[in-house]
Design a protein around this nucleic acid. Sequence first.
DNA 1: TTTTCTGCAAACGATTTGCATACAC
DNA 2: GTGTATGCAAATCGTTTGCAGAAAA
Lengths: 151, 151
Amino acid sequence: MGEKFFKLQDLRGMLSKNGYKMTPQRKEVLQIFFDNDADPHLSAEEVHEFLKKKDFDFGLATVYRNLELLCTLGILSKVNFDDGCTRYELASTDPKAHQHHHLICLKCKKIIEFEEDLLEGLEEKITKKSGFEIVNHEVKFFGYCKNCKGK
Amino acid sequence: MGEKFFKLQDLRGMLSKNGYKMTPQRKEVLQIFFDNDADPHLSAEEVHEFLKKKDFDFGLATVYRNLELLCTLGILSKVNFDDGCTRYELASTDPKAHQHHHLICLKCKKIIEFEEDLLEGLEEKITKKSGFEIVNHEVKFFGYCKNCKGK
DNA sequence: TTTTCTGCAAACGATTTGCATACAC
DNA sequence: GTGTATGCAAATCGTTTGCAGAAAA
């Protein structure tokens, strides 16, 4: 995991700077991500569930809207594991921190985070070859985790 | 594009070997992918449209079912460009042909295929480090294509 | 007070499913 | 003939939207 430089108390400023208002809904949605180190890739429904567990009964539509907003602000980012829903994770705000990838177990469906700047130097190579200016990348590895390997 | 070793006339055998029947619907759905070198990443709706243009009026549900089946058989594979639908492409049946990646232009949304075994040697490194056995990977680069680069 | 947010319910679009019929083998 | 595949329409599921009332600035 890249360092998370964004702190909850930065939220109000970040919002107002962009013409948005601070609300309990926004604070608590973001809080869920700080709470949940164990499962860092949450769907809107999951966030909604976690909020319910903490007795915050916000509308699901509001959760969706605020997840979207937090993405716009660069605080969250979307990830897609082809499991039928959009997932969100805390965006690493370290600009160097490209090196955050996912190992996806085809058996138990576990998602493992993997650190390494895999593509060191590679982006320049691609840019040179194809004229494509790279802003970001996403790498997923599919296979079998330690526990599932022996079938 | 890795070589496509799979040929249309292999379809019947591939189907019956797995207990499925050959039907015009299956043949024509696959044919669309052979027809369309220009746009190799088709959604179910698009396949359905292309079939209509050739006067094949198959039900959309059938198209979905057969795309799924062709994936099961390893003839097609799914790709996800986060544009709201599942897309399908001819699976490269060359087992060495891992090296097929996508450059996605954030401006014009064009998808550019890019060849290169980017991750040469890297998979072993990951396996050693994490015990994760890698079967396949998917790499996407987001940025701006040659035409869109200057804004 | 003005504008943005929220909650609700309805709308949506992609995909899936149930079922009766048609077709492949 | 037997079992699978198809077409259609209805169902499903994640997500979005319209709108009236509530809350932030």
